[in-house]
Design a protein around this nucleic acid. Structure first.
Lengths: 183, 183
DNA sequence: CACCCTGTACCGTCCGGTCGGTTAAGTCAT
DNA sequence: ATGACTTAACCGACCGGACGGTACAGGGTG
């Protein structure tokens, strides 16, 4: 009875969501089960269900977490930037250098079990797209860049081809340049 | 264009795969079950399992179908075109005007149940990306366009924001132009 | 009948969700 | 300050239904 037990976070939700993402990444979004998440997060099944009363709530939680982080990133781009929203989107992709904690995994996890749960994301993205278009003189070019960013996101998420490290850096630099040149 | 059916091992396969895609689209990739596919395709469960002995085989079949179509599209781009592969990729996205029969749904369906099944796609895409890069003077620009095409694919697949019809057309035209200008 | 396909009853396992605990940390009246 | 009570957080056995897969019995065509 020597060591003081480490103070547990009051709220186990982040640990649970992290476990869910890890499972989705390594075994597929469909393998997110309450038991598996419980095992991975070190909680019991009851503990998980205490934090998220249903599986749907858990998945919605994943998406919420992602959207919250997304908004935070968008807000962190300096006011003056001419293509703030576009640049913010790029940041959200770059943030997840380690695929492990790519919050975008929520998109796949959620869409696998119930596409309707994507609605909040749809709303958010529609809004973003509108801003991206109106922020630029050439809304079509802006849209192309937006799509490229989304493409990058999904290629990474699914571990599909996106070139070696050097090439990736070059692409990212180019994207930044193209965003800056939009104005 | 007539529906020339390739020499398929079993003849009910296309119907089965189509049903699987429809389920994935409307209810989520995780809702693809053998029973559900049987119901949707009008076959019995035994019938489905006769064509695809396991669920894994069915999912692999989905991916196969997609890759086969993909290769066909790539091959259909005239020899002379300077950025054949890139243009071919765009065609595979445009082909699925009705989200209903978007063969890319296979990507989501497969990744939901077992990410390893994506390996054939990974190989194919790596190869394509290599060609796309080497076909162009500016491989980074080519990569950006590739990512934009992939972004378009996934935005449609997940019914995420991609603008109204006019805007979509404008984006597609722009993509075509940019591909042509790659040289 | 042989062949090729289809239909269905059934089995074991897994999964989501429920429910009755348990533990620790307060709160409070006495 | 002590015992009674409450609450928050979590645990894990259990249930019913769904799922993947098997076994086998048709069925129609040559």
């Amino acid at each position: 009875m020597t060591a003081q037990v480490e103070k547990q976070p009051k709220n186990a939700s982040p640990k649970i969501l992290g476990a869910a993402r890890a499972i989705a990444l390594r075994e597929g979004a469909g393998k997110i089960t309450i038991d598996a998440v419980a095992r991975k997060s070190g909680l019991s099944k009851g503990g998980v269900l205490y934090n998220f009363p249903t599986k749907k709530a858990l998945l919605a939680g994943l998406l919420d977490e992602m959207l919250a982080e997304h908004r935070k990133r968008l807000a962190s781009v300096p006011e003056g930037h001419s293509s703030r929203t576009l640049r913010g989107h790029l940041e959200t992709v770059l943030q997840a250098r380690s695929t492990d904690d790519d919050l975008s995994m929520a998109i796949l996890a959620v869409s696998a079990s119930d596409p309707n749960l994507l609605d909040p994301l749809r709303r958010e993205l529609s809004h973003d797209v509108e801003r991206i278009r109106s922020d630029s003189q050439d809304d079509t070019a802006a849209m192309v860049l937006f799509l490229a960013i989304q493409g990058l996101r999904f290629q990474r998420l699914l571990r599909l081809a996106d070139g070696d490290a050097d090439q990736q850096d070059a692409v990212i630099d180019r994207l930044k340049d193209m965003i800056d040149e939009l104005e």
